[in-house]
Simulated assay, not measured.
Amino acid sequence: MSQNWMRHFELRLLDENGKGISLSDFKVTFEVERNDNKWPAVGTVKIYNLSPQTQNRIMQREFAKIVLIAGYDGLAPDVRTSDVGIARDIPTSEVGNSNGSNYGVIFSGDIRFTVTGKDNPVDSWVQVQACDSVEAFTNAFINTSISKGYTTEDIYIELMRRLEPYGISRGIVPEFPSTVFPRGRALFGYVHNYLDEIATQCKATWQFNYGKVDIVARDRATHEAVVLNSNTGLIGMPQQTIGAGVNVRCLINSEILLNGLIQLDQASVYRNKLTEQDLFSGRFVEKDINGNLVPITKIRDENGNLINAPATSQPASVATDGVYKVRYISYTGDTRGQAWYMDLACEARGSTDVPSSSFMNKQG
């Protein structure tokens, strides 16, 4: 029996002082994209059939921030695995966990623009788009010098001081290298460029998440594995992909976060087949008597023995234990419709595959 029962949804529009209005009872559609490649998360909501007074308040930019809370009132906690590295200081959002409920903040950000329109003569709407910490990403600047004997952590501390005026605080902090640098250094440029440098030195990725900076090492996870199956919200069959692991669709679950873990039944993963384009994209091809390209099935090794020619593209790693790391999340919802989904792009835990460029460039 499914553990998902009774959707929970809240939409809040807030001013700079944290005061505002709740529009949770209206028809609302929303889309949120969150990626681990540093770009700020983007949320777009469309609110239907507001009163002219409320619509004017939104269009006149009375409100500066938007908060989306979604999930289920009846989703019981699931079984977790405990054999993984966990970044314990992940920021906690507003999550309901009493009486089997599970809902939480899936997006909060600064409003970038608003627009009005109509689907038909009866149904009007206001669309609001917001970005998570975009002001800090685009404007935070550092211009200082640091004396000799500094460490990577010292640079991190300087960067956090420049982010504080934008309301950004510390989130997940990695284990910094112990290297002590013998010469002083000038720091001049955008803070996000220096965060790139720190993440590289820590073998990590970084993101602005819910007003905090998270720097997550690639061999760590933000939470233990959430089991996904038909009873806990898995929809259809996970799809193995070329260069990115698996794509998964499930019902909205606020426990699943970026760089967290999910666990699947391996039998449920639909295995990918190589296309002709994949087969013909490398050097193991030849022309037949008609001049058409065909794959070479046999090649000779260094000893002159015939062996099977390898395919030039390979499907991404499939985790033998069924545990995957979430690299991308897209939320889609409609409070009066069927859509209430999370689409996840994941890779096998410990995978050495290089993600495809289309996967890494996905952003809001």
Rank of each mutant, 00 (worst) to 15 (best):
S2E: 13
W5G: 03
M6L: 14
H8C: 15
F9S: 05
D15P: 05
N17S: 10
L23D: 07
L23N: 07
S24W: 05
F30T: 00
E31V: 07
G43S: 04
T44F: 05
P52A: 06
E62K: 10
G74V: 02
L75V: 09
A76H: 14
P77I: 04
T81N: 09
T81R: 12
A87F: 09
I90N: 07
I90P: 00
T92Q: 13
T92E: 11
S93E: 11
E94V: 11
N99Y: 14
S101P: 03
S108N: 11
G109I: 04
T114N: 12
V115Q: 15
T116Q: 11
D123I: 01
S133H: 02
F137K: 02
A140D: 03
I142Q: 00
I146Q: 09
I146P: 00
S147A: 13
L159F: 05
L163Y: 09
R170W: 01
I172Q: 04
I172F: 01
E175P: 00
T179V: 12
V180G: 03
P182V: 10
G184C: 08
R185A: 10
F188N: 10
N193Q: 12
I198V: 14
A199L: 05
K212C: 11
D214N: 15
I215Y: 05
V216L: 01
A217S: 12
A217H: 07
R218Q: 11
H223S: 14
E224I: 09
E224H: 13
L228N: 05
L228H: 06
S230A: 15
G236R: 08
G236L: 08
P238H: 07
P238I: 06
Q240V: 02
Q240I: 07
G245K: 01
V248A: 04
C250L: 08
C250I: 06
N259G: 01
Y270E: 14
R271C: 10
L274H: 04
D278M: 09
S281P: 04
G282C: 06
V285A: 09
V294Q: 14
T297R: 12
T297Y: 14
V318N: 04
V323Q: 12
I329Y: 05
G333M: 06
L344W: 01
G350I: 03
S351T: 10
D353L: 01
V354K: 10
F359K: 13
M360E: 11
K362F: 08
